[in-house]
C-alpha cells in the first residue's frame, strides 16, 4: 500500500471513530417525544401572533395545553382533539393548512414547481451541452 493510500485510510478510521462517538452521544437518549407535544405544536396560541401553544406561556395557551391533556386522558384521537379546536377557533388555530380542499395546494404547488423546474433545467442544460459539442 502506498503512503498516500495509507494516509487516507488513517483519515478514514479517524472519521469513523468521530462518527461513532457522535452517534453514541445522541442515540442513548431515550425516545419520549410524547404525544402531547406533537399536538401542542399543531395548535396556535390564539392571542400571541405566530407562536404555537407549545412555545407560548400565555394563560390561554397553558389552559389549552391542559385541555389537550384532558382530552388525551378521555381517550380521544389526535384528529378528534384537533377538530375540537378547529371547530371553535377556525382553521387558523391549526399550525398547518389541512391536507384537503383548496389548502392542499400549499403542499402540492411547491413540490410540483420544484420538480418541474428541475426537469426544465436538465432539459435546458442537455440542449446547450449538445450545442457545445458541435
Amino acid at each position: 500500500m502506498s503512503k498516500k493510500k495509507l494516509d487516507i485510510l488513517k483519515i478514514f478510521i479517524l472519521l469513523n471513530s468521530f462518527l461513532i462517538i457522535f452517534v453514541s452521544c445522541i442515540s442513548n437518549n431515550i425516545d419520549n417525544n410524547n404525544r402531547e407535544y406533537g399536538l401542542y405544536s399543531q395548535i396556535m396560541c390564539p392571542v400571541c401572533d405566530g407562536q404555537t401553544i407549545a412555545e407560548s406561556q400565555a394563560s390561554i395557551s397553558n389552559d389549552m395545553k391542559k385541555m389537550v391533556n384532558t382530552q388525551i386522558l378521555e381517550g380521544k384521537t389526535d384528529k378528534e382533539i384537533l377538530n375540537y379546536f378547529k371547530e371553535r377557533y377556525g382553521q387558523e388555530i391549526i399550525s398547518n393548512p389541512s391536507y384537503s380542499g383548496f389548502n392542499i395546494t400549499v403542499w402540492i404547488a411547491p413540490i410540483l414547481i420544484i420538480l418541474g423546474s428541475l426537469l426544465l433545467l436538465i432539459y435546458y442544460l442537455r440542449k446547450n451541452m449538445n450545442k457545445a459539442e458541435l
Partner: peptide
C-alpha cells in the same frame, strides 16, 4: 379555573 368554558366557547380576547 382551567379555561374549560372559555376554550369550549372559542374565546380569544
Amino acid at each position: 379555573k382551567d379555561g374549560k368554558y372559555a376554550i369550549n366557547y372559542g374565546v380569544k380576547a
